[in-house]
Nucleic acid binder design. Structure first.
Lengths: 191, 191, 191, 191
DNA sequence: CATGAATGAGGGTTCATTCAT
DNA sequence: AATGAATGAACCCTCATTCAT
């Protein structure tokens, strides 16, 4: 049998699936329980409320994302390869956790304390990207006078927009997406 | 006295405010009515349902956005100035209509028919941006071998991300944001 | 232009149609107005409320029915022919005014005063039938020891049941119904 | 404690009471719940909707009625005694379930599928009566040339009309009603 | 007189949460 | 600890009625 912590994770994963598919409001606790293979009441043994479950799911998901991003960044690759890997993983991740994309907006449904925390979580991602850029500059892979923060916006925004268009608008599967060319445009600019 | 159409617009504006502030599910029709200064039942004289009101609000909002964007693009400016204007207006617009940002994600809460329509609406915005890029290439302001579609992702994504960070994370007012430098990074690339 | 009274009748007829088709609760005042070719508010110039309109429509309908029944009964026919005529007319009438059939039950939705009135209206119909039976006995067309009241139940009940079965269950048109044989069974009994 | 099925029956009985007293539209689910001694939401644990509850109540009621009628018919009594028993039980039953009387008319408020089903249910009652008549003919209690179907209309219609008049118009209690004489008129005819 | 836009009370239904088993 | 039956607050929507034009 599963330990208490394992079952908690199980519920978090189920929550991620249901919240992703339906959004916070339309997601039913009962469905999450069903996916987790437990009774509805049991969810409340592990989490105080639906909202609390949502928060912890986001937290859990972002931790996973940050850790993976960190690994990618820490691999000793050229900046271009790193960005491609980042885009690839992000796409895979976004695809499984649309709620992660929603969170930035849905957060206004949550408490201020939560909102603050969410901002911080997201900042942590930005920081990782900025680290990567910094390193790229130091290694001479990126230009010296680059504004690191602005560059991080271009990277994150472009990757997100690209993913959204390819998956939701063009109906592609993630494997079918060509990230290389996208990264080239980011790196080379439009001029 | 307000004409029928004026009152319809009034309700749409109220809807934009309430939906923006609360998201689709948490927004109460009664509150929208209250903001519009009318009775709850009156909303249903103008719109078939809450969902229909939401759709038309999005539609109304996107139309406004598209028209303004079109104007900006049609002004005979250098591509850099155009992008700055685009970013400025978008920021102002996003600030008033966070729901527009949510829409991309909230759409998965709505019917498939609605999803399809929303995609098409958004594609229209992409097309305008692509037109602008095309023109920039022809005028020699942008490089000849630029992939227009990918460039549009970089532009839209970067502008959005920049706005989100500055307003929600850094707590700046729109007037305080420097769009020029941002646009430079987009145009010049990171390398 | 129509006189006030003519328009009142027009509304009553429209009400009969809509109430018949939908029952009291599902009938919308607006639809009645539409059928009557007037505005919704105008209905309230002629009737105090939906309920009042319903009452007066029933009243109007029953008056018509009673008058027609009276005529049939006053024709100098043999009892058998009279009953066939009664059944024919009732069928035609019921067909147009299902609500008349409903009234006996729907009346419990109305005020007690209305209920009382309705009972009296219906009693008047019973009385006419009883008159006819009386006459039949005097003319020797019916047996001397017949309980007039019970006989009226058999007549009214059988005709109603026959109609219901033929129209609603068997799907026949009224013209296709053979009332003669039915009347024979009523007159001759089962033994 | 009540089993799930027992509670379902409890709700059905409560529904019968409330629907009978108020008709379908005016009956409030909350009142049904109150009578059943449960919360409003609980009703929806057992039935999908108010309409579904109504259908199942009718179904439940008709089943009970049919079963009892069947028993009466299967007792080895003379046709006269059988009819008296039938009238007695029907009166008792109608008294408790006015909705059963309403159903024939209320059905036009419901879906076509429901209407069809209701017709079939009622046909089953007709069939039982016809069986009884058939048997009566075979046993020589009823005349050989009797039209079985028409006879069933006379029986059902007369009994219903008699009941309605005695209870609603004359204000009698069921025990006070004399069914014997009524049956005699049905059997002997009016001539 | 006639209208129909505006209203808001009312009720069906959903679902997060509780709690007895 | 685990369950799921029970609950009732909350909210969308309908439509009889009103009243300004």
């Amino acid at each position: 049998m599963a330990t208490k912590e394992e079952k908690r994770i199980e519920i978090l994963k189920a929550a991620a699936r249901i919240f992703s598919a339906n959004g916070f409001e339309k997601a039913k606790v009962e469905d999450i329980a069903k996916v987790a293979g437990i009774g509805k009441g049991t969810v409340y043994e592990y989490f105080d409320s639906k909202k609390s479950l949502f928060k912890q799911m986001i937290s859990f998901g972002l931790d996973q994302y940050r850790l993976s991003i960190k690994e990618i960044i820490e691999e000793n690759l050229h900046i271009r390869a790193r960005l491609v890997e980042l885009a690839k993983y992000s796409a895979k991740y976004f695809n499984q956790h649309i709620d992660m994309i929603q969170m930035a907006t849905q957060c206004n449904l949550l408490s201020n304390e939560m909102k603050q925390w969410l901002i911080e979580e997201r900042l942590a991602v930005f920081e990782l990207i900025e680290q990567m850029i910094d390193e790229g500059i130091k290694k001479g892979e990126l230009r010296q006078n680059l504004n690191v923060e602005l560059a991080s916006f271009v990277i994150i925004g472009s990757i997100g927009e690209h993913f959204t268009k390819r998956v939701f608008f063009d109906g592609l599967n993630i494997e079918e997406i060509d990230f290389g060319e996208m990264v080239d445009v980011i790196l080379d600019g439009l001029v």
